[in-house]
Write a protein that binds this DNA or RNA. Structure first.
Lengths: 346, 346
DNA sequence: TTGAAAGCGCTAACAT
DNA sequence: ATGTTAGCGCTTTCAA
């Protein structure tokens, strides 16, 4: 590809016509005779002509690519979102440029800048746990870059958003723990900055309150880096375990936190659920074969990616400025397994 | 970004100098006075000038992006490779465009075509399980597109490659099963087309032979779609279980096959390792907490991505044609856990 | 129905 | 040290 690529000029020369005629013929313009079109199409095929997307982009002022910012691909959730994004983007002619924040605000800003030097037509973003201010996105949005938030959204920008029903998932998970006889329920979650943390916290708190359990600040542990740093999860767990009134159950708020807590409990040789019950947000397909099988809150990753991408491309391709925005809330699912089994009476 | 982006002309007009002077000043050319450079730089900052990468690309004939083709991000291995790729690519100024084949040859061809319309400077690829012929890559390679293979490589193209030591990993895994008292060891693997299958098969076979066990064709099951289709894994397992001389251990050859077999054995209520021992290639961090803990062969995904990207960028940026190619073989690691415990005497 | 010319934003050879 | 010009490949008026 690097050299000697066939251009429109080559076809023009070959056929003894002008480049503009070729260009028009290739896009089936009505102002070109059927005969010429046939000749051009045939010649293009013969020479294996491929349009140069950079020239097209420069000319048209778009890139036919979508920038994606996720926390990390190294978990169960985001790859599923990616599959959903793909399922729409390719069929509508868009490339995907993916970046990971690894839960760092700095990396997020850098990635967004990298992406938006006109190299993308729109942005699909789930902000990092560190992200509090979003000025880096606001200015882009004001300049007209279409943005759709998914998963971790910001209410500081008025645009389309796609989230899971984090509130309900958290509510149901907590409710289930209570009904299974657990009273001292801890919550290990991500940074309080981000939307999913707030939503999940609300569900957790409401379930407690409705059951006349006073939410206990000491039972709520935040991992400011979303558990990217294993140490912060260890610290959270240690602090919980050292409390005088040690919790008997934990509700964890993300893929990475859930699996890490699981590993740590095993390492500490704490029996699940006897010593500590567990239920958490995660999409791992291994929940069934874990020892004991893991109760989970599942998020519809694929559907979220699909929906967000449909929204984004509609935004990109809209003729007139869009002013009505939607926040789609997709259902979470709670799977009850053995890690949150009915508490045995002592 | 979409409109009113600041261009070099705007700066030129603002400062009353020529566009080319601005261009040169911006790249700190020696033929521009220090004073002018200062003015330009300052003005660029003031107007928030961002070069248009498409124009640069069109001009220079490169895109500063790397195309990536993997089977699927929806497992443990490839995201780790991605992290390795990132760790090199960004710091050397390259964007990443990622595509998944989902183990389909057709999708692979389509993705490669999509990527290579001059939109990428080089290609990092791990072929799909369906991929047998690689003419779609050969022609690109001949035209001068730098390609580096990783994980699943092809010997039909002479270029840099990065693989894990699949042979050794498979050999050691099988050897370990034998030493733990298992004699009837099955192997469930991917399509025989791809390199990793052949390499792993060799390790498996040699270990058997060295222990005077005759390899048994009926014990080797191929999943032509790499287990993308769960049914084919189920079929493989069923066929193994229905044999008169049913195997007492399985060695599985990829992330997805390993975890799926694990799930299936559980569903069938077969005790591991009593009814069936198991060891398999997978990078899942959950191996320790699975019931029972899972013996695994681990591949250095991060390092593979890193190495492959270094090789690719060196290729891309090489002044002179490269004719000496290297195949890097990175070590696998075998982790022995309970799923392949010493066989109990009956 | 076709062609000529201008221009997207940037760069580089070649003036000045 | 700075400016002029041409051109990357393609599209799109506008003219023929």
């Amino acid at each position: 590809m690097n050299f000697e690529a066939v251009t429109i000029k080559d076809i023009a020369r070959e056929l003894g016509i002008s480049a503009s005629a070729v260009s028009k013929a290739l896009k089936d313009s009505h102002e070109i005779s059927a005969k010429t079109k046939l000749l051009v199409l045939d010649c293009a095929r013969r020479l294996n002509y491929q349009p140069n997307p950079m020239a097209q982009s420069l000319k048209r002022g778009n890139s036919k690519s979508i920038g994606i910012v996720v926390a990390s691909l190294d978990n169960q959730f985001f790859p599923q979102v990616m599959n959903g994004i793909e399922s729409v983007a390719y069929s509508r002619g868009y490339n995907l440029i993916i970046t990971q924040t690894h839960e760092s605000f700095e990396l997020e800003v850098q990635n967004v800048r990298h992406l938006t030097n006109r190299a993308i037509d729109g942005l699909l973003i789930s902000v990092s746990t560190e992200t509090d201010a979003i000025d880096h996105l606001k200015s882009l949005h004001q300049k007209g870059l279409p943005i759709v938030f998914f998963d971790r959204v910001s209410d500081e920008i008025d645009t389309h958003k796609v989230i899971a029903d984090n509130f309900k998932g958290a509510y149901e998970a907590t409710q289930h723990l209570i009904q299974s006889g657990y009273k001292n329920i801890a919550h290990i979650t991500s940074s309080p900055n981000i939307s999913i943390t707030k939503e999940r916290l609300k569900g957790y708190t409401l379930a407690l309150q409705q059951n006349n359990i006073q939410p206990n600040e000491a039972y709520i542990k935040y991992c400011l880096h979303g558990g990217k740093d294993q140490q912060e999860i260890e610290n959270a767990l240690t602090e919980l375990l050292q409390q005088p009134n040690r919790p008997d159950a934990i509700f964890t708020a993300s893929d990475r936190i859930t699996t890490t807590i699981l590993l740590l409990l095993h390492k500490l040789k704490l029996a699940i659920p006897q010593d500590m019950a567990l239920i958490g947000f995660t999409n791992t397909p291994l929940a069934d074969v874990i020892n004991p099988s893991l109760s989970t809150v599942y998020q519809p990753g694929f559907e979220m990616g699909k929906k967000a991408t449909e929204m984004l491309i509609d935004l990109i391709e809209s003729k007139r400025p869009v002013t009505e925005f939607e926040t789609a809330v997709l259902p979470t699912q709670v799977f009850i397994r053995d890690s949150s089994q009915q508490k045995k009476k002592l």
